[in-house]
């Protein structure tokens, strides 16, 4: 097993770190661990990903152990790791930040 510390929260709250114990497999990525956590421990965790480890879609950027990188290629070590949202992007929730280009957004809603 290994441990992943995951920043949780939204723009409205100060946030916290949740620590998850995850079965360790050699070569596993941080994204592998997050997908495992959602499937086994906590489905409410939010993160972006698309191509699942091919590093083709480039949508899974986050801060891994303090460095900006792709969660799909960042390896999780047996000693564990920490993942946080991108610091310079507006926060949406948990690890999801606003990475959608402005001209790809919906206009303000009506109801």
């Amino acid at each position: 097993m290994t441990e992943l510390r995951v920043w949780r929260g939204s723009a409205e709250d100060p946030g916290r770190y949740d620590v998850y114990r995850v079965p360790y497999e050699e070569g596993m990525s941080v994204l592998d661990a997050l997908v495992w956590i959602r499937g086994h421990e906590d489905s409410s965790l939010a993160f972006r990903y698309g191509c699942v480890n091919a590093n083709a879609c480039k949508t899974c950027m986050a801060l891994v152990d303090g460095e900006v990188g792709y969660m799909c290629t960042a390896r999780l070590s047996p000693a564990g790791g920490t993942v946080e949202p991108l610091p310079k992007r507006p926060l949406i929730r948990d690890l999801v930040t606003d990475t959608v280009p402005d001209d790809e957004k919906l206009p303000p809603g009506r109801d």
Binding site: S10, S44, L45, A46, R48, I92, R93, D94, V96
Partner: peptide
């Protein structure tokens, strides 16, 4: 289906 409420980017809902 269990869907937990979340304030934004609710993957439970998307799923």
């Amino acid at each position: 289906v269990a869907v937990r409420p979340a304030d934004g980017f609710n993957l439970d809902l998307q799923d």
